[in-house]
Design a protein around this nucleic acid. Structure first.
Length: 596
DNA sequence: GTTAGGG
DNA sequence: CCCTAAC
C-alpha cells in the first residue's frame, strides 16, 4: 500500500523512508562480554575493606563526622617510602596514630620489610595487624585522565588493605608510585588540618622510579542503570536463600553457587548481581581561594557519615586545578546472606569472606560515574568529563564490579543526525575531547545545574551489619557451646542481610527532552520507524549515554500523547506544533505500516 | 540485548 | 523514568 520511497503520507513534508531494517545480527554492534585476566583484585583485600567499613559503622568510637575537631583526631596512617635505600632494603613504614579513646585497632605495623609474594608483588608482614576501619586514600589527581583516576582508584582497593595480618601490596612500586601525593589513612583528616597534598609526608616521589603500570581495562560499559535494573530484578529481589542448614553452619546464597546455574539467563544476570557499588556520596566544592571554608566544613557537619568525601578545590592563577578525592571506605551495598541462628559471628565472617571471594574471584574493575552516568571514555580528563567543575554533592561515584561481568566498550560512533552535526562544529578534532565537546554542545546537559544542589542521601540506611574483623575470624565455631545456643543471651544473626536503599536503586536524574532532541528523535523515527528504537537511538543520539533506546521509545510515546492533547494540557517546554504534527504523521504512518 | 507495553 | 515480559 505504501511504497517506501518517496511516498507521502498525507502530512506535509513527510517522506516515507527507505531504510531497510537490517537483520538484528548485523545491527548488533556491541561486543559481547570479554573476560580479562590482568590485575586481579584480591578478594581478601576487598573483604578487608568491607570489614573496615562495617567495623567503622559498628564501632562505638566510630567517627561521628559531627565535628571537625573530632575529625582531626582521626588516626593517620602514613606510608613512608625511602627511595634512597637500595631496593632490597626498602621498607614501608606505617605510622599509625590512633585516637586515645578509640578501642578499635587500626592497621598497626612498624617498619615492614617487603617480601615478594607469588604474584610478583610484595607483602608486608605485620604483626597484630587487623582491619578495623576503612582505609582511605587521598589522591591529588591534577588534570589527569579518568584512566589514571580509575587506575589509582583501583590501586586503592588493591593495595591499601590488610588481611590476615598482612599488608597486601601488589607491587612495591605501585604502592608508592603516587609519590608524596598518596597517603594512607583511616577516616581522618590531616592532623594539621591543612589540605596541601604537597605537604603530605607520604611516599617519596617515585619520579626516578620506573612506573610500571599494569594495564587497566577501560571503564566498563555497565552503567548504574543496568546494575540497578539487575539488582532490582525479580530474580535478585526474590533471591531469598531458601534453606538453612540444620547443622548450624552458614550457607551462602547463590554466590557459593556461582557458575552453577543451568539457566543461562540467570547465570548472566548472576554475574551482574555481584556488582559492588562503591559510592561517593558527598562531593563538595571547596574553593581554596574563593573564600574561606566554602563548604570546607560542610562535609563534616552536613554530609554526615559519608563513607567518602571528595574535595574539589581550585586555585586561581594556577595552571592546573586539583581534584582532591578522599575515599574513606568501600561499600558493597547488596549482600544477601542467610545464616543459622546458631551460627557464630566467626562463621558469619567466614561466610562473608567466602561470598566476597566468590564475587571477586576474577578480579574487579573500577568505573567512574558522574551524575549516575558511567564515564566510559578513559581518555577523558577530569576537566572534560565534568568532574573538575560543576559538581553537585552526589556527582561522583565509583563502581566496583567483577571483571567477569564486564562488557567492553566499542569505539564511539557518531550519529549522523542534525544534533550531532550541530554539535560537531565545536569539536576540536581531538579524539579524546570529542565526547566532551559533543556532550557540552548538546542541549541535554543543561539540567545538570538544576540538580546540582540536590543532595541525595539514600545511602544512610546501610543495613549491612555483618561485621567482619580479621582477628575475630580466628574464633572457632562456637555453635556447640551452650551459651551460643541460648537465644536469650545471644541475638540471632539476622537471616536476611540486605542493604536497604542502596545507591544503585537511585532513580536517574530527570532530563527533560529539549526541542532539539525531540527534533532529532522525530527525524529518526520518520526515517526508521517506531519499531527500531535501537537504530533510532544511534541515529539520533549516537552514544549519548543518558538517552537509551528505551528512553526514546518512552519519549515517543509521550510525544504522541502530547500531540493528541490540547496545548493547554501540555506541560514542560512547549514543543512546536510543527514537530508534533510530524510526530502524529510518523506515528500514523508507521502504525499503519506495522498493521500491514 | 531489544522490543513492547504497563505503571 | 521504571519495570518486566517476551523474544
Amino acid at each position: 500500500m505504501f511504497s517506501n520511497k518517496g511516498q507521502e503520507y498525507g502530512f506535509r513534508g513527510y517522506q516515507a523512508p527507505s531504510v531497510p531494517r537490517a537483520p538484528r545480527s548485523t545491527r548488533r554492534t556491541c561486543p559481547i562480554l570479554r573476560k580479562t585476566s590482568d590485575g586481579k583484585l584480591r578478594p581478601f583485600d576487598i573483604l578487608a575493606s568491607v570489614a573496615g567499613e562495617l567495623l567503622l559503622k559498628k564501632d562505638a568510637c566510630s567517627i561521628s563526622h559531627s565535628s571537625s575537631t573530632h575529625r582531626d583526631q582521626y588516626p593517620i596512617l602514613e606510608a613512608v617510602y625511602d627511595e634512597k635505600l637500595p631496593d632490597k632494603c626498602k621498607t614501608l613504614e606505617l605510622k599509625p596514630s590512633i585516637p586515645e579513646n578509640c578501642g578499635k585497632s587500626l592497621v598497626v605495623s612498624e617498619s615492614l620489610s617487603p617480601k615478594k609474594d607469588q604474584d610478583g608483588g610484595f607483602e608486608f608482614n605485620a604483626k597484630d595487624a587487623s582491619v578495623s576501619s576503612a582505609i582511605g586514600l587521598s589522591l591529588d589527581v591534577d588534570n589527569r585522565s579518568i584512566s589514571n583516576l580509575v587506575d589509582e582508584r583501583k590501586k586503592l582497593s588493591k593495595d591499601v588493605l590488610m588481611h590476615d595480618g598482612k599488608f597486601g601490596c601488589s607491587s612495591y612500586t605501585d604502592m608508592c608510585r603516587l609519590g608524596n601525593q598518596i597517603k594512607y589513612f583511616s577516616n581522618k583528616r590531616k592532623v594539621d588540618g591543612s589540605d596541601d597534598g604537597e605537604n603530605w609526608s607520604g611516599c617519596t616521589p617515585l619520579s626516578s622510579m620506573k612506573k610500571k603500570m599494569k594495564p587497566f581495562n577501560s571503564v566498563p560499559r555497565t552503567g548504574d542503570r543496568r546494575i540497578r535494573k539487575i539488582l532490582a530484578s525479580k530474580f535478585w529481589k526474590n533471591s531469598k536463600l531458601k534453606s538453612t542448614r540444620s547443622d548450624g553452619n552458614l550457607k551462602i546464597g547463590h554466590w557459593d553457587r556461582i557458575g552453577c546455574y543451568r539457566d543461562q539467563r540467570y547465570r548472566r544476570n548472576f554475574a551482574y548481581n555481584f556488582s559492588a557499588i562503591n559510592h561517593i556520596k558527598n562531593f563538595y566544592i571547596r574553593g581554596r581561594s574563593s573564600g574561606p571554608k566554602k563548604g570546607g566544613n560542610k562535609d563534616v557537619s552536613e554530609y554526615g557519615s559519608s563513607p567518602l568525601k571528595v574535595g574539589h578545590h581550585t586555585s586561581n592563577g594556577r595552571k592546573y586545578s586539583h581534584v582532591k578525592l578522599q575515599i574513606e571506605s568501600f561499600r558493597i551495598p547488596e549482600l544477601f546472606i542467610e545464616v543459622a541462628e546458631t551460627s557464630t559471628i566467626g562463621s558469619l565472617k567466614k561466610t562473608v569472606m567466602e561470598a566476597l571471594s566468590a564475587i571477586l574471584k576474577d578480579g574487579a574493575h573500577v568505573g567512574v560515574l558522574l551524575r549516575g552516568e558511567i564515564v566510559k571514555d578513559d581518555r577523558k580528563t577530569l576537566l572534560h568529563s565534568g568532574i573538575y567543575h560543576d559538581n553537585p554533592p552526589d556527582a561522583l561515584s565509583f563502581i566496583l564490579e567483577p571483571k567477569s561481568s564486564l562488557a567492553p566498550q566499542e569505539s564511539p560512533k557518531l550519529p549522523n543526525n542534525a544534533l550531532t552535526r550541530d554539535a560537531s562544529h565545536t569539536s576540536t578534532g581531538c579524539a579524546a575531547n570529542l565526547d566532551a565537546h559533543r556532550e557540552a554542545s548538546l542541549p541535554l546537559t543543561e539540567s545538570h545545574g538544576a540538580k546540582a544542589g540536590k543532595l541525595i542521601e539514600n545511602d544512610h540506611h546501610d543495613a549491612a551489619s555483618s561485621v567482619v574483623d580479621e582477628h575475630l575470624m580466628e574464633s572457632r565455631d562456637l555453635a556447640a557451646t551452650p551459651a551460643l545456643r541460648n537465644r536469650e543471651t545471644l541475638p540471632a544473626v539476622p537471616v536476611q542481610q540486605r542493604v536497604k536503599d542502596s545507591v544503585i536503586s537511585q532513580r536517574r536524574v530527570r532530563r527533560p527532552f529539549s526541542v532539539a532532541e525531540v527534533e532529532a528523535l522525530v527525524q529518526a523515527v520518520e526515517k526508521l520507524g517506531t519499531g527500531r528504537w535501537r537504530d533510532v537511538k544511534f541515529q539520533a543520539f549516537g552514544d549519548v549515554e543518558h538517552r537509551t533506546y528505551v528512553d526514546l521509545k518512552d519519549k515517543w510515546k509521550t510525544l504522541v500523547h502530547t500531540a493528541r492533547i490540547s496545548p493547554q494540557q501540555r506541560r514542560g517546554e512547549p514543543i512546536p506544533q510543527e514537530l508534533l504534527d510530524r510526530v502524529l504523521a510518523a506515528h500514523a504512518y508507521w502504525s499503519h505500516k506495522q498493521q500491514m
